[in-house]
Design a protein around this nucleic acid. Structure first.
Lengths: 343, 343
DNA sequence: TTGAAAGCGCTACCAT
DNA sequence: ATGGTAGCGCTTTCAA
């Protein structure tokens, strides 16, 4: 609870000198530095957040975010989380700037990240691809001193501060768990993934299949197809597959494309006869849940992800030494018709 | 974004005067007051949180909490939430003091609330009974100027700032929803409530039964018993009831006593043959879930409740005019073996 | 290398 | 009724 002022008095130096020492800035003699450090330690000095924040108001903080949200409803809750955090922190001089892009093309991502870097934000928050070229761009930014958080999908080996997002494997396993409560019948599954290159989709599938095995639910992957998170493609792929695979009784949709899949199922007259496993609470899925076309949705607290990413970065910028940034893994949430609406 | 200083300059008065006007303190002439108010409005003045917080550091804030947590594991997550909030706000001069009591005896509650009131906290956070005598004590405290939040169980007509807690009716309905996914069979239910006088328990039961009806699950209440949230009583009551009611296939535990109920079920050789419906994630329930003795637990985010209660009160104290305190209803969370552990 | 001081925005208190 | 000012804890800048 000691303040800089107290340390300065006790050390017989000025507050400016103490500040220099504590920030490892040069221009202080070794002996003075040592003395100040000793006293600071002795007094258990921890900088006061309120003081820091107020002083920081002079140089407003901006946080730059990359979101591949164009045409993807899922991200709107994350954006709400950004906005909520921005509002909460606005009095502390924080503002959030989002770079919106579409899809998962690596060069688009790299261009957007470079653009954000050129804007000189105090920190970055990135939802991007874990590919070598992207990694090196991010590493570069981090080495130049800008803290980076990975959001919703991780880029582990870049030196990012932490990952904020869900555990996709657990989400898949949870889907298997709840399915195994609902039915004990053998599952003949059509798997529709957004892309083989999206880590989260792969992990969901893996979690699902492994857990079904552990639960001793007989299980056959009838087919796996890629929809590129596109409803039309999802529709066509589903229709095509169902035509030739009469025994499919479960469709596992690892990414987007729910509307397309359900249309195809409906046209085949299989509505409510097939278990459709869906992730993330977007309007269409919510509607289908309420109509009992699907039984449950596995969600990942996107609002919290957006909020926590900004909050974490702010805390780090203000309080860097004090907080050791940890991964923030949001919970795997099961939504059914009864608990999908927050009252 | 105007500051008090700017308003003072523009109005040609001192900052002290502006401060007085904005806080409706007396000692300002009507015309000056009017002028200042006009300019503040014109400039869209909103006090800066960082400034307020720093200035507030001089008079440390304490928040007093009442928790009937003695002998009740459920509350430990709420306390964790208190502690987390306290840590986050400690640099702003906030500390939390919890008054621990046991059970739901009204005179105990009143005594504890009066004790908290005598300690002159900046605000109170109460988990208590919604009974007339308690209400009047709370109303009194509020009228004397101390803001109060109701936590986990509401006391609506007292003028409390807001309620932070769960929607018990929804929790009950969600239990019915998931049960109806698992089984379509007629339910012959033993209901074990903690107390007929605990609002949350009643609401859970109501939500459960009404939703089962809506779902067209045939449903008979075989028996309803009171356990007073005590394991021994729950055990004995369950044993007694199961002896004479061979057809019971569902036990709905609205409050505590899970360990006792499950022991009785086990002794009757009915383990995994009866659906046991359980609320709140406490160690024993978690264990039973992992052992598949129970299929799911309906939870209410107690950590979040504790955290948000403190945060809300702090925001109100600092920012009173800006934030209009709203009820904070935590989500109804379904936990199964796969998603009970946060990874 | 170090000190002194101003300033972030607000509150509180003393002086007028 | 109003002004002036010190101070919360920290950062930054200018001067020595």
């Amino acid at each position: 609870m000691a303040t800089i002022k107290e340390i300065a008095e006790k050390a017989g130096v000025s507050r400016g000198t103490v500040d220099r020492v504590l920030h490892n800035r040069l221009g202080v003699s070794a002996e003075v530095s040592e003395k100040v450090r000793a006293i600071a330690n002795e007094l258990g000095f921890v900088p006061n957040k309120a003081g820091k924040i107020l002083a920081a108001c002079k140089q407003p903080i901006t946080i730059g975010c990359l979101l591949p949200d164009i045409g993807n409803k899922f991200f709107s809750d994350i954006i709400d989380g950004f906005n909520f955090a921005e509002k909460e922190l606005s009095d502390f001089g924080v503002s959030v700037k989002v770079e919106h892009i579409k899809g998962f093309d690596d060069s688009d991502h790299i261009a957007a990240i470079k653009k954000l870097a050129s804007e000189k934000h105090a920190a970055l928050c990135l939802t991007t691809l874990d590919l070598p070229e992207v990694q090196s761009v991010v590493q570069d930014i981090i080495q130049k001193g800008t803290p980076v958080i990975s959001l919703n999908t991780d880029i582990p080996d870049t030196g990012r501060l932490c990952y904020v997002g869900s555990n996709y494997y657990q989400a898949g396993a949870t889907a298997a768990g709840i399915l195994s409560l609902i039915t004990k019948e053998p599952q003949k599954v059509l798997i529709i993934t957004g892309s083989y290159h999206i880590r989260g989709h792969n992990e969901r599938i893996q979690g699902f299949t492994e857990r079904l095995k552990e639960k001793n639910i007989p299980f056959v992957k009838m087919q796996t197809v890629e929809s590129f998170d596109d409803d039309t493609q999802a529709y066509e792929q589903t229709l095509e597959t169902l035509k030739w695979n009469y025994t499919i009784n479960c469709i596992f949709i690892a990414g987007a494309g729910v509307a397309g899949v359900c249309r195809a199922v409906s046209e085949c007259g299989l509505e409510k006869k097939i278990h459709i496993i869906v992730f993330d609470d977007i309007p269409i899925s919510r509607k289908l849940l309420k109509e009992n076309v699907i039984d449950f949705i596995i969600c990942q607290q996107p609002f919290m992800q957006g909020y926590m990413a900004i909050k974490h970065l702010f805390d780090y910028l203000i309080d860097g030494k004090k907080v050791s940034p940890q991964n923030y893994i949001t919970e795997t949430v099961i939504k059914i018709a009864e608990n999908i609406d927050t009252v």
